[in-house]
């Protein structure tokens, strides 16, 4: 038997040999440049704090990165079914579990790549244009648990939390991908839930039912903790609590994907 890494290599090939992936990467590269240039052209002051600009651009970019990874995730399994390539993929001397795992690992690597590109560019472009600032008063609010810490720590945690949110949503898209034969349906449904999620959180925040804090969407916005708040303001949850809830959802989504994928009859 060949080694498992080769399966991941295959999945990577199927991601990076596609035009759409390079369009996505191109957009992730362009946005920080465009936003900074637009700021220079439109703002009167022509000066800004590099950290604050970085955070602003990161917030914009991460919702895009999430959509991009969701598209790739939703297409990952369902796409193989809709094109029929799943048949030639599954008749190899590998268990279905290994093949599914290799797909998920390739997705994680893709999301890490996009996040790293995002970090490097948003930091690089803004530091180049506005210079390196040591003033963090505009970046870290006074009531933040990280008040007084370095901007590196703050931005580092910001990225980590954004990425955890992303990977939970990706696990959800991946689950839909294993459940549906059509990649269009899997992509559409995942993105709908991604947007519906913030509306659901808004609706939930007006109730006081105790189960609300266990709902996925009440825990997704981890970055709220960085600024001394909560994802849903009227529930005083902690980071540890939200991380545990997300971990449970993450595991459940993956167990469902795995169960469906392993048992499914391939008749397409």
């Amino acid at each position: 038997m060949a080694n498992f890494w080769k399966l991941v290599q295959n999945e990577n090939m199927k991601i990076y040999r596609r035009m759409r992936t390079w369009v996505m990467l191109g957009i992730v590269v362009l946005i920080p440049i465009v936003v900074t240039v637009a700021f220079l052209l439109l703002s009167d002051s022509k000066d800004a704090n590099n950290w604050e600009m970085m955070q602003l651009e990161t917030t914009i970019l991460f919702s895009l990165i999430t959509i991009f990874t969701v598209v790739v995730a939703a297409d990952s399994v369902a796409g193989e079914f809709s094109t029929g390539t799943i048949k030639l993929l599954l008749i190899r001397p590998w268990s279905r579990s290994s093949i599914l795992l290799s797909k998920f690992i390739a997705l994680v690597l893709f999301s890490v790549l996009l996040s790293v590109v995002c970090f490097v560019l948003t930091w690089g472009v803004n530091t180049l244009v506005f210079g390196f600032s040591s003033d963090t008063s505009g970046l870290i609010p006074a009531n933040s648990p990280l008040a007084g810490q370095s901007p590196w720590t703050y931005m580092g945690l910001d990225y980590l939390y954004e990425w955890i949110e992303l990977i939970v949503i990706v696990a959800f898209a991946f689950m839909l991908s294993s459940a549906f034969r059509s990649s269009g349906l899997a992509i559409g449904l995942s993105i709908f839930l991604l947007f519906a999620g913030s509306m659901i959180t808004g609706l939930l925040s007006v109730t006081n039912k105790p189960w609300v804090k266990y709902v996925l969407f009440s825990n997704l916005d981890l970055t709220a903790y960085l600024n001394g708040g909560n994802p849903v303001p009227n529930f005083k949850t902690t980071v540890g609590f939200s991380l545990s809830v997300l971990a449970v959802y993450f595991i459940v989504f993956n167990i469902v994907s795995w169960t469906i994928f392993r048992r499914r009859d391939v008749a397409a």
Binding site: L7, M13, K14, T83, T85, K87, R92
Partner: peptide
């Protein structure tokens, strides 16, 4: 059914890596 966005050779390489 092969991966249409890959070349014939890349398709073969894909299956070869699994064996």
């Amino acid at each position: 059914e092969m991966y249409k966005y890959l070349t014939g050779y890349q398709n073969l390489l894909h299956y070869a890596r699994m064996n």
